[in-house]
Amino acid sequence: MKILVAVKRVVDYNVKIRVKADSSGVDLANVKMAMNPFCEIAVEEAVRLKENGIATEIVVVSVGPSTAQEQLRTALALGADRAILVESAEDLTSLAVAKLLKAVVDKEQPQLVILGKQAIDSDNNQTGQMLAALSGYGQGTFASKVEISGDSVAVTREIDGGAQTVSLKLPAIVTTDLRLNEPRYASLPNIMKAKKKPLEVLTADALGVSTASTNTTLKVEAPAARSAGIKVKSVAELVEKLKNEAKVL
């Protein structure tokens, strides 16, 4: 089967971000970027399905600026077969991204689409569900286990009180949670080989998709700073403060 994996270029999770002085957004100039960690888990799962003889081809897709080609090359080095970049300079909402991915799904006809559960920049946790709605497919969100048998996929999901397993008819959409797997690192020879793998560049216009949004970000601010705390001398003093001062015990 063919698997489509969506990846996003985001600020590296180790970077301490700064809000711009004019409150227009987060300062991304000269900041280290990387593949969204949940997308790494999505790529890894697809590669494992290929290693287990279930997947025959892995197509990796990203919607974003031309620099997102770096993250697509990373995915190719990890084992994806070819890449598609839907180039867009503007910051798109999850719905716009889902519409663009739907156009790619229509074109590629994958049996399974794997996305991360959320991107660590916008923290929306929407795109996979929206893509599932637009394509009319079942959705297995927050997946900790994915098992394909015949024309269905059993997805074990992380839910608030534990785990839930659902069975979805293929084609289906899966979004990854932390527990699904431990992503591998790309080896140097594979990074070199990835440079020769095909990477197709498309635009929203070419896909015939409108990316208009009903949301507007008015401003972005730094969160309120925490007031300075105190050091206590002993466990007894700590417990006393928690009981009587903070009243949380």
Binding site: V11, I17, D121, K219, A222
Partner: peptide
């Protein structure tokens, strides 16, 4: 957004 490191309106 950004894991609580910024607040968007």
């Amino acid at each position: 957004i950004y894991a609580g490191n910024a607040i968007a309106t």
